[in-house]
Every structure is written in structure tokens, then in C-alpha cells.
Simulated scan of single mutants.
Amino acid sequence: MPDMEEGRSRQRILTFAAKRYISAIERNPEDPDAYYNWALVLQESADNVDPNSDSSKDSLLEEACKKYAEATRLCPTLYDAYYNWAIAIADRAKMRGRTKEAEELWQQAIRNYDKAVQLSWNSPQALNNWGLGLQELSAIVPAKDKQTIIKTAISKFRSAIQLQFDFHRAIYNLGTVLYGLAEDTSRSGGPDTSPNDLYSQSAIYVAAAHALKPNYSVYRSALRLVRSMLPLPYLKVGYLTAPPADDPVAPHKHWERSQFILNHTELQQVNDSESAPVKANALVEKAKRFIKVDVADIVSVSTCSDLTLPPGAGLCINTTHGPVFLVADTWESLDGWLDAIRLVYTIFARGKTDVLAGIITG
């Protein structure tokens, strides 16, 4: 009963607020803020509607959208209006399942997130929501269009994470979209990336989201599903082209493609070249010659297109001991390494290394 009474009280406040904004518009029909605030009130009123009453919720959201449209017509640079308008459209789309009407609404929402990001590029939440909208759209469009939309969604989630390294929702969402892509690839046999690679990538993001927010049950459940897809006891294993450990600016001919492992504490080169087998005692045998970066020493991680590097997708890890330069096989592979190293560092910086350690070594 208290919740119901609180809801009624809140609705009375919203109704009163709406009347104020209507009066403001009557006094000045060219006031974008009045339209924007009225739209917010309508949108919140829609959230207060009986969950079983889709029609009244939808009509309130539709009215809110009209007010946002008017606000942005009067003030085309109103970021918040585009952002909240997109949310309102997305809520309307969710009520329509996987229909043509839903598809059109998702496309509208995506256009508004696009506009919001154009107006305020430093908006990880808008990028994350944009990615979610694309993910929803990909489930409706014809199969031939799906992969392009999914890849765009991946880029939006990744951009959101690059703006806010500990944005666990975007990290988790990137994991889920990669998992879905892995499922699609395993069914259709897509040519670009093996499903196992995609599953492994997906697991990295889910593990990172869980490490950052260990109490989130959704992340915990997802981790149970994907943990075995990690290259345990490591988070990531793959190839990078590296200079000799004792000569980071060696001539290109001395750089070799070799295997690297990343766990919760370090990035470590594990053998001199791809032709050399990885032995259990390889780390002991040649540790002094191997490149090793302690996560605790990392200052920043970035792409690098320095001409002194061999051709390819350059990676620079700035550490307290100086920069470490490596080259990934492809730009797509580089994205994976950048994210993984940044995530491990972010988890360390947030004091959650023990959670990540439990995931990969437990």
C-alpha cells in the first residue's frame, strides 16, 4: 500500500508540473526548455503507468516524443532532448516485439542517439544505448543485414568503454553481443573469425564486468556460462609481433611474431617465435629475454602508428619504466588486446584484481 500511495503522490506532482509547463508554453510557444521538461514529465508518467496497460504507456511516450521533437526543432543543439527522446522511442519499440513497426522505431531511436553523440561526443551512456538499439535492431532485420549492424553495435560499446574504462554495463553488453555473434558464426560458418575466438573474446568482457561488479547476479550467471571459454588460467592468449626484450627499438628484421599471455597481473611473452613450441618451463628457461609488463606498472595503453614500428597495427603500453611497443596481426586483433589490457588495468586500479584472479585461476 505505501508504494501505491507513493506512486499516486508522485503522479500528482507530475500532473502539477505538466500544467506549469503547459502554462509556460502558452506564455512563450518558442520555449524549448518548456517542451523538453514537459516531455520529461510525460516520460516519467509513462513509467508510473500500470505495467499491464501498454496502450496508455505508449500514448504517453508518443506524446513525450512529440514534445521532444518540438524542443529539438526550437533548439537543435539540445543534447538531453535527443538522448531522452531516443530512450522514449526505444521504450515504444520494446512494446512491439520483432515487428516492422518496432524496426522503424529502433531506427528512429538510433538516429537520435547518433544526433546526441554528435552534440556531445563524451557520452558513454548514449554510445552504450546506441549499441543496445543496434543490437535490438539486428534481431529484426533480414539476416543479410544483421552482421553489419552487429559490427556497428560492437564499435559503439567499444567507444563507450574507451570513454569510461570501468563502464561495466557497456563492457557486459559488448560481451553479450560478441557471444551472439559467436552463436551466429557457429551456425553459419562465417568466414572472418572463428566462433571459438569470438566466444573467448566474449568471455573476457563478461569476466571483466563481473570483476568490476561482483554482486551483479546477471554478470555472475553469464560468467558461469562463458568462463570455460577463457584460455584458463589466463584471460587472453594470442600472438603479437615484438622486438627483442633488450632492444625495444631494434630494426624491423629482428622483430618476431610470438605468443603472449595476459592474466590478472601481467602481460608476458611466452616463447621467442611462433615456430617455437610452448613448453611448461618456457617461462623459467628464458624469462630474462622475454617481454613482461606488470599490470601495476601500466600508465596507459594506446594504438601507435609510429614509423619506427614494423608495418601493422601498433600497440604502445606506457609503463612507469618506459614504453613497450608491440604490433598486432590486424586492427581487429589490436582492439581485442587494447581492451583486454585496459580492462585488466582498470580492474587493478579499482582494487578488484582478487576477483579477476578468482575467475581465471580459481
Rank of each mutant, 00 (worst) to 15 (best):
R73L: 12
I89G: 03
C65E: 13
D47V: 06
W85L: 06
Y82I: 06
A86N: 10
I87V: 13
A46G: 08
Y79F: 14
K57Q: 14
D47H: 11
K66R: 14
Q43A: 15
K66A: 13
N48D: 12
Y79N: 01
Y68M: 04
D58F: 15
S45A: 10
A46F: 06
L78A: 04
Y68R: 01
E63K: 12
L60K: 07
E62Y: 09
R73W: 06
E62N: 08
L78D: 01
D54G: 12
A88E: 11
N52A: 13
W85T: 04
L74G: 01
S45C: 04
E70H: 04
C65M: 14
Q43T: 13
N52C: 06
A69V: 02
Y82F: 14
Y83K: 11
Y82T: 02
W85H: 12
Y79T: 00
E70V: 02
T77G: 09
A46S: 09
A81R: 00
A81T: 00
L74Y: 03
P76V: 02
Q43K: 13
E44I: 05
T72A: 12
C75M: 09
E44R: 10
A69P: 01
K57G: 05
C65D: 12
S55G: 04
L60H: 05
K66Q: 14
V49L: 05
A90S: 14
S55T: 08
V49I: 15
N48E: 11
R73E: 13
P76A: 03
A88K: 08
A64G: 05
S55E: 15
S59W: 13
D50E: 13
S55V: 10
S55M: 07
S59L: 13
R73K: 15
V49A: 15
I89S: 08
E62M: 07
E63V: 07
Y82D: 08
S56Q: 14
D50M: 01
E63A: 15
A81N: 00
N52Q: 12
A86L: 13
N84C: 06
L78C: 04
S56T: 10
L60R: 11
K57F: 03
E63D: 14
K66F: 14
N84Q: 09
S59N: 11
K67P: 03
L74P: 01
D80W: 00
A90V: 02
L61P: 12
L60E: 07
A90K: 08
Y83D: 13
L60Y: 10
N48T: 09
E44M: 09
T72W: 11
K67S: 07
L78P: 02
L74V: 02
S55N: 11
S56K: 08
A81Q: 00
K57P: 00
I89T: 11
W85R: 03
K57W: 01
I89H: 07
S53P: 02
A90I: 02
Y82S: 03
P76L: 06
L74E: 04
N48C: 10
S59P: 05
A81F: 00
A71S: 03
